[in-house]
Design a protein around this nucleic acid. Structure first.
Length: 293
DNA sequence: CACTTGACCTGTCCGC
DNA sequence: TGCGGACAGGTCAAGT
């Protein structure tokens, strides 16, 4: 479930650890995870120096000196974990790491660097790495169609409102999860932002008042910023570039708290399904417009 | 076009 | 203890 705060945390970690270092070898054990047969790998990845690490929505962009980019999507269980040449610092901190000795059974791709090793682990194999000429990244369909970054300073309330207006009749949670509307929001932060703004996730956009939209905008940015500060959310498998968990979930009000008392009113949190997604609400604080309970 | 469902995968958890 | 099934949730493709 890496969403914007988790991917951004990984990006920052990789920037500190990788920039300036050279990829000397790449191995992989799952073809859908990495285009190992593509000649571009041998020509433009092996031997390349890492010049910067970027992010767009939930996608990591590792830019290489060859003017190629590793485009990485972690999907639900992907990890990019760095181990220095002195080896396994995760093992010394078992309570803070989800990864012990690497590689392990979830390791899909191994990047050998001049000074270290970088592991792409992905238990469920949904994630992927593509090798793309850097100027072509912007033309990749997902990148070309993705919405604005919510933590950019240009992302004002007016922009937020205008983006939502494209989907007036859709359920607000479904719209928040749509990457072409706003970049980087997934199940955790949509549930948390809607709770904080006291909006029912199944409410259609066009029934929301200006005041509710204002609250949603404010709370959405607040939960993203708080999570970034806490190093993201580690539900099951998420770890940062050093193999360590984030602590945001201990601040979550509804996500994965089914049955626990609402932090605002004490009512037990419920789990419902909205557009096929597990969704967490306080049935007291988040009332669907047009209903009385 | 808007919206929903299924596919992609594996590990965990729950009930019997 | 073992086993079946539900569940986790990001994105794309296919179906209604």
């Amino acid at each position: 479930m890496p969403e914007l705060p988790e991917v951004e945390t990984v990006r920052r970690g990789l920037t500190d650890l990788l920039v300036g270092h050279t990829i000397t070898q790449v191995t992989y054990d799952w073809a859908k995870s990495f285009p190992g047969e593509d000649p571009a790998v041998r020509r433009f990845v092996v031997g390349a120096k890492i010049v910067s690490v970027g992010r767009r929505a939930k996608v990591l962009l590792v830019n290489l000196s060859t003017n190629y980019t590793l485009v990485i999507h972690l999907k639900m269980t992907g990890q990019m974990v760095y181990r220095g040449e002195h080896g396994d610092f995760g093992a010394g901190h078992p309570s803070k790491s989800l990864t012990g000795q690497l590689p392990d059974s979830s390791t899909r791709v191994i990047f050998t660097l001049d000074n270290a090793t970088l592991f792409f682990n992905d238990q469920r194999k949904f994630g992927w790495i593509k090798v793309v000429p850097t100027p072509a990244v912007a033309e990749m369909p997902f990148i070309a169609s993705v919405g604005p970054e919510p933590l950019d300073k240009n992302f004002t309330f007016e922009v937020f409102k205008a983006r939502l207006q494209r989907r007036q009749r859709s359920k607000i949670k479904t719209v928040l999860l749509d990457q072409t509307v706003i970049a980087g929001i997934g199940n955790i932060y949509s549930d948390e932002a809607l709770f904080a703004a006291r909006i029912h996730p199944a409410a259609p956009v066009n029934v929301l008042t200006e005041k509710q939209l204002q609250r949603l905008y404010t709370e959405l940015l607040a939960v993203l910023r708080l999570s970034l500060e806490k190093g993201g959310s580690s539900d099951r498998t998420y770890v940062n570039a050093e193999g360590k968990k984030g602590s945001y979930l201990s601040f979550a009000n509804v996500y994965r708290r089914k049955g626990a008392p609402c932090t605002r009113c004490g009512t037990p949190i419920e789990r419902i399904v909205v557009t096929g997604r597990g969704t967490h609400i306080c049935p007291q604080c988040q009332v669907l417009p047009g209903t009385d309970n």
